[in-house]
Each structure stands twice: as C-alpha cells, then as structure tokens.
C-alpha cells in the first residue's frame, strides 16, 4: 500500500502537483488518468523517488520514503519495478541482458540462476525465443513486454507503468493491460498505472484518480466513472466519439 499526503511539486516557478492526497492498495491496478500535461508522469516519478518534492509525504507500507536512510532507500528501490513510457530498454544490451540487469545490480546470484529467472519471466510475458535479439529489432509491443519482464524480474512489491499502451495498436494494448492486471493479482503487487486510454480504464481500473492541472479532481473506479457528474471527468471520458455513442445507447436503453 502506498499513501500519499499533500504532495506538492514545482519546477522553478511552474507549480505542477498541487496537494495530492490518495492511497494505492495492494493486489490491484491503481490508475492515474488525465490529459497530457496534467502531471501524471511527474507524479509517478515522485512516487519512484526520481523527483524530490517540496511538501507532503509518500509512505510505503507506512514507511515515509524521504525519512529513510540511504541503505533503506536502496532496499526499497529494489522492491520497485518501473515500465517507462518508451520502454527505456538499454539499447546496448540484448533482451535477455536487459531482463537480467536488475538481478546483476541487486542480487548476488550466479549467471545460471539469473538466466533461469530471466527465462521464467520472459516466458511469463509470452516472449520465448527472443532472448538474443537487440531491443531495436523488437516491435513496440515486444519492447513493452520486455520492459514489464525487466520490471518484475526482481519480484517487486510495487509496479509503476507510465502510459504502457502509448504507441501500441488497440489489440496489443489490451494484451498489455491484461498482462499487467494478471501479474498484479498473481504476485499481489501494488500497481500504479498512468494512462489516458479509456480502454484501460474499463479493463483494469479498480481504483482511478483523475488529475487536472496537477489537482486531484476526482477519485473512483471503473464502475463509478461512467456515472459521475464531475464535468472535468465526463469531458475527459466522453472526449471520444465512440464513448459518446456508447453512452447515448445506454441512455436510450434505459429509457425503453
């Protein structure tokens, strides 16, 4: 569980996150939605400890990150996995080396132990037989799966994904969403996903927070989001023609 209290973050004069308070539960996908530039990535990078923040606190299982000693921070970091927006695979390493990299950094395993574990997670993300490829030779969907494999190889307690569907076709996007959801439940991970993809919202949005210009505008789930009266949320949800049509159909059905 991750508890965020009154989080404030600025870059110089630009006030990006304006007092965010929320909690992310274990064993479920927690979604952060909002338009481009609303502060989703900055928020995620604060959660990861990549950005310092001026005010507020972030606690992991009750432990305040900024109050930890350096070694405790490293220990906590080793329990976090991150899937970056562009996958961020190391392009000088093969797919297998990418997946083994966190093990080389955080554990004292032998080469064959690391290889076994890499095989295991690559199989889990349905990537058998691509081990020796370079990331540049893999498709976007494959790269994303490698990034997920690298993020979970060290059995993290926390998984962060920044727009895992961006740049993917709708079908692959759903495969990736389901993979994230399955892994989250299977290993009982606290997962936080940034997205502006309404499909993801419907598929895996057990808990959803909506950011608008760095303010937490609305909190709910994939069940409540379609009923909310909040105008900013409905503008966002029904910004696509498809969803407006679906909504109209529902309303007509209800009226019959």
């Amino acid at each position: 569980m991750i508890e965020v209290k009154d989080l404030e973050k600025s870059f110089g004069d630009a006030h990006i996150l304006k007092g965010i308070t929320t909690t992310f539960e274990k064993g479920q996908s927690n979604l952060i939605i909002g338009q481009s530039g609303s502060g989703k990535t900055v928020f995620l990078k604060c959660l990861l400890g990549l950005f310092d923040y001026e005010k507020g606190s972030i606690a992991y299982e009750g432990k305040n990150f900024s109050k930890l000693s350096r070694n405790e921070k490293i220990d906590l970091r080793s329990e976090m996995g991150m899937v970056f927006q562009g996958s961020a695979l190391f392009d000088s390493m093969t797919i297998a080396e990418n997946v083994m990299f966190p093990l080389r950094m955080f554990t004292k395993q032998s080469k064959s132990e690391m290889e076994d574990r890499a095989n295991e997670v690559l199989k889990r993300v349905n990537l058998d037989g691509a081990h020796q490829k370079m990331p540049s030779e893999a498709s976007g969907g494959m790269q994303k799966r490698v990034a997920i494999a690298r993020a979970i190889v060290n059995r993290p307690k926390y998984l962060f994904c920044d727009e895992p569907n961006s740049g993917l076709d709708p079908k692959t996007a759903i495969v990736i969403d389901n993979l994230i959801q399955e892994i989250t439940e299977e290993f009982n991970i606290t997962t936080v996903v940034n997205t502006h993809d309404m499909n993801s919202v419907m598929e895996i949005g057990k808990k959803i927070i909506f950011l608008k210009d760095g303010i937490l505008e609305w909190e709910g789930s994939n069940e409540t989001i379609f009923k909310t009266e909040n105008e900013a949320v409905t503008n966002f949800v029904y910004s696509s023609e498809l969803f407006r049509k679906v909504r109209k159909m529902y309303i007509e059905e209800d009226n019959q």
Partner: peptide
C-alpha cells in the same frame, strides 16, 4: 543524450544506480 531522452537514465536511477 539518447539515453536521457529515452528515459534509460531514469531506468538506471530507479535501480538505485
């Protein structure tokens, strides 16, 4: 620079490197 813009540097830092 390429590692910076493709967030590979962030990926290193997440791993405590």
């Amino acid at each position: 620079g390429t590692m910076r813009v493709t967030e590979q540097i962030d990926a290193l830092e997440v791993m405590g490197i």
